[in-house]
């Protein structure tokens, strides 16, 4: 007597979705612009070798002269001037503000970008300007402004906004207009004033 068994070939067939290779470099291209050339005051003088190099035992895998130039990476990098290129913009939020933002995102079904746009729509430039002016008004009797220290335990936690070139340019302009120290501080202030 033979026992009828279910046909299992399909069950064990590799799932096409699992086989799809995931491109882990996605979103990383173009994050690093070419490094700025920094001209040091003077290269440190390294003394000439007084002794012979120690005998090399195991060879490093195919060491080649370090000065040999590599062809530049061929990956396309977005031009900073392109307004249609969307890229990540890091914003650092204090822990309590991050909680407020996360709650708003969860309860209202909006993402960080939407919340940011909404905050800037609701907060006037004067309010933002006042916000940044107040943080810098502490002065000593001698007139020298004191450095404003952030309270301990309120360091920023990074979130990422996905903004296109036009939005980034708008943020830069707004940062200048209201006297914000950075894009991150500007966005954080708008979210704080809106949600706090």
């Amino acid at each position: 007597m033979t026992i009828e068994r279910p046909h299992l070939a399909d069950a064990f067939k590799p799932q096409p979705t699992k086989k799809e290779p995931v491109d882990r470099s996605a979103g990383l291209a173009g994050l690093l612009p070419p490094p700025r050339r920094v001209t040091p005051p003077a290269a440190p003088a390294v003394e000439a070798p007084a002794e012979a190099a120690p005998a090399a035992g195991e060879k490093a895998p195919e060491p080649k002269p370090a000065t040999a130039k590599k062809p530049r990476a061929t990956a396309a990098r977005p031009q900073a001037t392109e307004t249609d290129v969307t890229s990540n913009v890091a914003v650092y939020l204090e822990p309590d503000l991050l909680e407020l933002v996360k709650t708003a995102r969860r309860t209202r079904g909006l993402n960080y970008d939407d919340l940011t746009v909404e905050a800037f729509a609701a907060i006037s430039d004067d309010t933002l300007r006042n916000h940044f002016t107040q943080t810098r008004t502490a002065q000593t009797s001698g007139g020298m402004p004191t450095r404003v220290r952030r309270p301990r335990g309120t360091s920023g936690i990074q979130i990422q906004l996905r903004l296109d070139g036009t939005q980034r340019a708008w943020l830069d302009q707004k940062q200048e207009e209201v006297g914000a120290p950075s894009r991150s501080a500007l966005v954080a202030a708008a979210l704080r004033l809106q949600l706090g």
Binding site: R24, R72, A73
Partner: peptide, 8 residues
Amino acid sequence: LAASAGHR
């Protein structure tokens, strides 16, 4: 990962 994205 950075290298795979085209950075040297």
